[in-house]
Computed example of a mutant assay.
Amino acid sequence: MNTLKMKNWGLGLGKHVIIAGPCSVETEKQIDDLCNSFEREPQIGMFRAGIWKPRTRPGNFEGLGDQALPWLQKVKNRLNIPVCVEVAKAAHVESALKHGIDVLWIGARTTVNPFSVQEIADSLQGVDIPVMVKNPINPDLALWIGALERMNKVGINKLAAIHRGFADPYDKIYRNKPNWNLAMQLKLELPDLEIINDPSHIAGKSEMIFDVAQRALNFGMDGLMIETHPNPEAAWSDARQQLNPEQLLTILKEISFRERIDFENQIPENLKEMRESIDHIDQKLIDLLSDRFHLIDQVGAYKKAHDLSVFQGGRWQDVLDSRTKLGIKKDMSEKFMKSLLIAIHDESIKRQEKQIANEAVEPLTII
């Protein structure tokens, strides 16, 4: 159960905020060039920039640090929008506040460490500044919420989350796998919390950013943080995932912003009817699953009586192959069908194992 008690939810920047700027501040000219481009684009609601860069391995560019902060003050004056930077320790917070930075964000490598998060929280005691918290590198919802709670406990009331995806060494598509369901679970836990999507870190490739950003907005996320550089090919860090200003503006023109329905009385009648039909089908699905698992219990009793092993590889492979093919014929993806069948099979194995071990099978609980 979450303990967040907000007075002023969100960053106060309106719907569908666009946060743009370079992965890393490199030169004053780089920042001036971006300002020249952004001055003509009113959709940019906040300027982001990395000045302390936590790198995976030593020897990579780790940011200019305090040297870059005066240049960000110039951005505020020229564009008249808030400026945000990443902080990873108390010394960063002190420097950022001294130079009038408007918003802080906590990066994924920091969120994963409660000691580091608490150090930042303690340094913000009594400070009224918005803070955005990126998800931890690993898919751990409790860590994400915990970092938000630590900020809130010291009096930070303007909070937002940044969804930047999760490390997955087996995923070959994304730099950081989006795990949309986990971001949506955060929204269920904290429905008033703004969630900003970071398609740059999820995609890892500039050509994928539009698709990731559009999907995030389709899920009802509240804004986008997109890394933008005057000349991405020459960027000192994360060159592959940065857009130039022209590419960014093209995306902002083509993307479709989605409205989220928050209250039942806002639902159009035809949508309500479709949802009621879905509810009816879901009930049938649950009834069918219940019937299937009761048959599984009988199979488990038979295997116990005849000293048969719970796992029967040939049967499982046949079920996986044949049901997947049936699902594909019904316009369902192979990935979905296999995920569904594996989940059902895992539950079936657990129920049979309980029978073999002379344990009572627990009643089905539908969550």
Score class of each variant (00 low, 15 high):
Phe47Met: 04
Leu243Ala: 08
Asp171Phe: 02
Gly10Val: 04
Phe219His: 15
Thr250Glu: 15
Leu79Gln: 08
Phe257Asp: 01
Pro136Ile: 05
Asn8Trp: 03
Ala305Gly: 12
Ile281Trp: 13
Asp222Tyr: 00
Lys284Val: 15
Lys5Cys: 09
Ser37Leu: 00
Lys335Trp: 12
Phe311Leu: 09
Phe293Met: 15
Val310Trp: 01
Arg351Lys: 11
Leu285Gly: 13
Ile145Ala: 03
His92Ile: 09
Arg258Tyr: 15
Lys98Gln: 15
Tyr174Ala: 01
Gly63Cys: 00
Lys7Ser: 08
Ile278Pro: 10
Ile328Tyr: 13
Asn244Met: 10
Gln247Phe: 02
Ile226Lys: 00
Leu341Lys: 07
Lys304Pro: 04
Ser237Arg: 04
Val299Glu: 07
Trp180Gln: 04
Glu227Trp: 04
Asp168Leu: 06
Thr324Met: 11
Asp192Gln: 15
Ile281Leu: 14
Trp71Gln: 02
Pro136Phe: 08
Glu269Ile: 10
Pro268Phe: 08
Ile156Glu: 02
Gly50Glu: 03
Ala108Leu: 02
Ala305Asn: 14
Ile31His: 06
His92Gln: 12
Trp9Met: 05
Leu288Val: 10
Trp144His: 12
Gln214Gly: 12
Met46Ser: 05
Asn113Thr: 03
Met208Cys: 06
Asn197Pro: 07
Lys284Phe: 11
Phe61Lys: 09
Asn244Val: 09
Ile101Cys: 06
Phe336Cys: 03
Ile296Ser: 13
Leu186Gly: 06
Ile255Phe: 11
Ala142Trp: 07
Pro230Cys: 03
Val361Tyr: 00
Ala88Pro: 03
Phe210Asp: 07
Asp238Val: 05
Lys53Glu: 01
Asn265Val: 08
Met332Asp: 08
Glu334His: 13
Leu341Ile: 14
Met332Lys: 14
Met337Asp: 04
Gly45Met: 05
Val85Tyr: 08
Ile120Gln: 03
Asn157Tyr: 12
Glu119Met: 05
Lys284Cys: 12
Asn135Thr: 06
Ser290Met: 11
Gly12Ala: 05
Asp238Ser: 04
Ala213Met: 04
Ser116Pro: 00
Lys350Phe: 11
Glu269Thr: 13
His306Asp: 00
Glu194His: 06
Pro58Phe: 00
Glu353Gln: 14
Glu194Cys: 02
Arg240Tyr: 10
Gly146His: 05
Gly10Asn: 10
Asp168Pro: 01
Phe336Glu: 15
Leu190Gly: 07
Met132Asn: 08
Ser95His: 11
Leu64Glu: 04
Ala360Met: 11
Ser95Met: 11
Lys284Gln: 15
Glu41Ala: 06
Trp236Asn: 12
Lys7Glu: 15
Asn77Ser: 14
Val103Cys: 07
